[in-house]
Design a protein around this nucleic acid. Structure first.
Lengths: 192, 192
DNA sequence: CCATAAAATTGACCAAAATCAATACTTTTT
DNA sequence: AAAAAGTATTGATTTTGGTCAATTTTATGG
């Protein structure tokens, strides 16, 4: 149980057996079926979720009811509405399973205790958030400075697994495009 | 010296006088004149810079030589090419002073030692990167889900100081727009 | 295995933003 | 104070992506 979580943790910060079992006490497993929600807009986000298995999406909805995917969460990734989690404000994102998924949940109180009691947990957190930040930064750079075809080519290069497992219109949503436009971008790329 | 830096630090994590003077040993002040560079694309980013005074911009350039601003750094903000700093890969961003500026620099070795020796520095770092992450996330959400006029309105609401002090075409660049388009957006907003 | 739903493609048309070019306005430098 | 450099606005035109609608393709649940 929690295999991937601890493999990931140990890759970043090596844990002793005692530390590992200490941390285990703070974790909760959760399974979600496809289309089930981990979080709905307006609720307070009570947990950070580490994805052991499956894929989820975090998305916001605009006035016209269109969904805009802000993040995918695959195996090994962490997904949450971090702002809501940290501030207890209502969430602006929905988090929904795209496939049947298995999660490791860390509640707010668990998170806070772990930060106080297990220094390596703070390091783990810092490294995770740093990764997430760098990923976002690359994404913005790509949005504001690369032509569409390049952006999509880069996307499939970095996330071949997402392309395999996620419907195309969700990738369009993630890229801020209509499904039709992404379809045309793909055709343009393939006819070269 | 380093007033804003330590005010900021203490707001996030309260330091004792000893800790404060210990940390001081790792800091280096630096002044930049307007248009001078802290970092040029291709160089290795050797420092994290905390802005005591002034404004800087971090930007990438595309094939056609257009610059794309990924981040502004004002008083109280941290600016760096973090990826380059952490990995020693060549920087993809240029960092340039928009006004005469005063910086507090933290070198790579200082950063690493501080992380090991001063636990509160790790917390400070974690909180900073968390803020930066949340800021980026809001920015992407806004890009992929809000109409232009709303995006600009939100921008001037959140960053009135940037609007005051930075030429408009740089804000356009930050938003991923041509200067002409931003000018027109502004006109549309003002005639309502 | 079929029926239905979901997803992707394609075409026609429309809207938004980029580009190009000219001009006005502001700031900085000398 | 004049010249130069930098900045912002405006108009005309082109390009890009969005919208709407129809059709094909693929996936899924009974």
């Amino acid at each position: 149980m929690y295999e991937l979580f601890f493999r990931n943790f140990n890759n970043k910060v090596k844990l002793s057996a005692e530390e590992e079992s200490q941390i285990k006490n703070y974790l909760t497993p959760k399974k979600l079926r496809k289309k089930q929600y981990l979080l709905q807009e307006g609720d307070i986000c009570k947990t950070i979720a580490f994805v052991e298995k499956g894929i989820l999406k975090a998305y916001s909805t605009d006035e016209q009811g269109n969904e805009h995917i802000i993040q995918f969460g695959l195996e090994g990734w962490i997904i949450s509405d971090l702002y809501s989690f940290l501030t207890n404000e209502p969430a602006v994102y929905n988090i929904e399973a795209i496939e049947d998924s298995e999660l490791v949940l860390i509640s707010k109180s668990a998170h806070e205790e772990l930060l106080l009691k297990v220094p390596k947990y703070e390091t783990f957190t810092r490294l995770n958030i740093t990764n997430a930040y760098l990923t976002m930064q690359k994404r913005i750079t790509s949005i504001i400075s690369s032509p569409l075809e390049e952006r999509y080519a880069k996307f499939i290069e970095i996330y071949p697994d997402i392309v395999q497992r996620v419907p195309q219109h969700m990738i369009a949503s993630y890229m801020g495009l209509s499904p039709e436009t992404l379809s045309r971008v793909r055709r343009r790329i393939s006819t070269k």
